[in-house]
Design a protein around this nucleic acid. Structure first.
Lengths: 230, 230
DNA sequence: TAGTGGTCTAGACCACTCA
DNA sequence: GAGTGGTCTAGACCACTAT
């Protein structure tokens, strides 16, 4: 007896799509028909189809039926790297050094991103992250002290800003921007590399509900690569 | 009367996690209890919890119960950019130019990635993608002609390799690597920029089932940024 | 307006895994 | 061994939308 599960049905449907039995953009049978065909409850077919829809392989519309997606949306996922883990899984010792920690007026682009009123201040930190004793990444961060006043009284020598924020503000959302820049003197200094080296940059802004928490720019040592999967 | 749905329950549970009512790592009530509490079927609670598990906010184990995730996995998703769409949504005209299209022996790293036997050949293409009349990205690609022999008889002047592959090999998987490099002479030439500029690079290998299809390196014009969300 | 997916229920059995 | 999540079923009603 064949096992009938939503996973096996998903697989079967996927096969019929990949084989071309159901062409791109064409309408596939309704849930009821498929349930009869596979000898299972409609709910089970529904789950399988929902999974395919989540993956962007089919589009479903009430009354319109289910169609194979014209241009399969290719989504890649990746985990936001946590520096300490990144370094330690590579077999090195992680450490960090807080270079600067001042309360001052952020430049306009930062101010608007954190929704800080004109003339307001924010905490500015610069941190160098080390793998063993060589610089691995350089972090420049602004924290909205109105949203996270506790940051002012935390001894940031012991725990990195990075980790503190993850611990204290665990469930937040945000956006991420990747880019490449040439190392200017400040970055080159911090990472102990030459000016002009191509640097991989992650720019990240984080907020909790409507409160803007922090914006950070992370400059990785040259040669860094970020892996992901389709 | 309150609407009871798996979405509303998901939201309610999320709130209890975010508010700290359920601490990080702590065990939360079982499905049956929550079903009683919210006055719905266990199935409904199950769906809500599965959603939270998919998002990486809770971890579920049989007999072990459901626990709030210690280190909320921060996953970012992004859509793999399709060059034509990228350019056209920016309001520019897309075009491309196939600079090179030869069958030759790939260098060892490419050979091993595509699983091509020693001494075997593969199709090598170089394409420049334009936004209006200025270069936008430079693409270097190797295609495994054993897996996709049709590529040899396709007029690649009309349709870009990029699009052809998406159309012909729609349902494949792959991996993606992001990095930054300094433009060498070849890249600088193609993108009409200066040698040494910091270039954002996407490296992508694609396969269908067990057949390795293609590996591609895409060099974006300096200043390019890739946006994503948490 | 009729057809299709979206979702809830109540009950059942199974599979895993912790103690 | 027992408790918890994983999943299937059969039936029902609802919501959207293409025609």
């Amino acid at each position: 007896m064949t096992v009938i599960s939503h996973q096996s049905i998903r697989q079967a449907l996927l096969g019929r799509i990949q084989s071309g039995e159901w062409a791109l953009g064409s309408r596939i049978p309704g849930e009821t028909d498929l349930a009869t065909e596979y000898g299972c409850a409609r709910t089970t077919v529904n789950r399988a189809l929902q999974a395919l829809a989540d993956e962007g392989l089919v589009v479903r519309k009430r009354k319109g039926g289910t169609r194979v997606c014209q241009t399969p949306v290719r989504q890649a996922k990746f985990e936001i790297p946590i520096l300490r883990e990144q370094v330690e899984t590579a077999g090195s010792n992680y450490s960090h050094r807080l270079v600067c920690n001042k309360l001052k007026r952020p430049p306009p682009p930062v101010r608007s991103r954190l929704h800080i009123p004109a003339g307001g201040k924010a905490a500015h930190m610069q941190t160098i992250h080390y793998a063993d004793s060589s610089p691995f990444a350089y972090e420049e961060r602004w924290v909205n002290t109105q949203a996270v006043p506790e940051i002012l009284t935390t001894p940031l020598g012991e725990i990195s800003v990075n980790e503190w924020l993850v611990k204290m503000v665990p469930f937040s959302s945000g956006d991420v921007v990747f880019s490449a820049v040439s190392a200017d003197e400040k970055i080159a200094d911090a990472l102990e590399i030459e000016v002009g080296a191509a640097i991989f940059v992650i720019d990240r802004t984080t907020w909790l509900d409507d409160a803007f928490i922090t914006t950070m720019t992370l400059y990785y040592k040259e040669g860094y690569k970020l892996y992901s999967q389709l």
